[in-house]
Amino acid sequence: MSEAVLSSLPRLAPTQQRIWQRFTPLQRMLRLMVWMAIVAAIVQSARHVEIIPEFLYDAPEQMGDLLSRMWPPDATHYPQTVHAALMETLHIASLGTLLSLVFAVPLGLLVATNLTRNRLVNLVARILLVSSRSVNSLVWALLFLAVFGPGPLAGTLAIGFRSIGFVGKLLGEAIEQAPRGPIEALEAAGAGWFARIGYGYWPQVKPAFWSIVLLRWDINVRESAVLGLVGAGGIGMVLDTAMNLFQWDRVATVLLAVFAVVVVAEVVVTQVRKRVL
């Protein structure tokens, strides 16, 4: 019955039919261009990447060989060397994160456009934050190694400087998203810049801030583990030694230990987030 009613609606001639298009012609052009650019980038990259078929073919065999040498892991290695190095890694991660706050908090305040109105200051802060982020912690480690020599000092500073960009950027965004209401109330009451931050922005941004710090600590635990590969302290150095000596069972121990620590760190972070944030 409903078919009969609907089909009795006037069937418009094609020229009279209303056309529906999801995107305007301009939008369609732009989207097409972007898709084509993406495809071109992929094709271009794929053509120039050197893929040596022989290496690909015996890859499974190589992996199998490696894995068999890694099993069983050398359990005695743990108490001797791995444990101390693991603790050192944790210290590097934690200290580095705390250190980064010293610079990240002021820069985060300066880069938030609603808090700092001076555009030039915003820009400078952004440049500093971007530079800090763009350089890997591993590369920062190389720099600090050249300055301070091998050891965990270089590693801690590397983690710290890398984290400044991450924490600063996210903190700035959190501040920019804080609702204006309480801030306006404080302004109306005559509060100065510091008062506005302390009583207006800080209480609102607090949960986001600690969440960001925890997240960065979690990432830093992972990153600290590999810094030792270039000599910046922590478990990476044990790993490097074992790999250079082809002691794959010790390598396995180290990797398992790192994995365990990373899992524990994630659990800790999840629990803290659930209870406190």
């Binding site: 609907l6 609606l9 056309i19 529906w20």
Partner: peptide
């Protein structure tokens, strides 16, 4: 790809008019 039969699109426009939302299609 949003390629619905043209009659469906016409019916849609007609229904929009019926419920009083003819200009709201997009």
């Amino acid at each position: 790809r949003r390629k619905f039969p043209p009659q469906d699109v016409q019916n849609a426009f007609a229904l929009l008019d019926t419920v009083g939302l003819g200009d709201f299609a997009n």
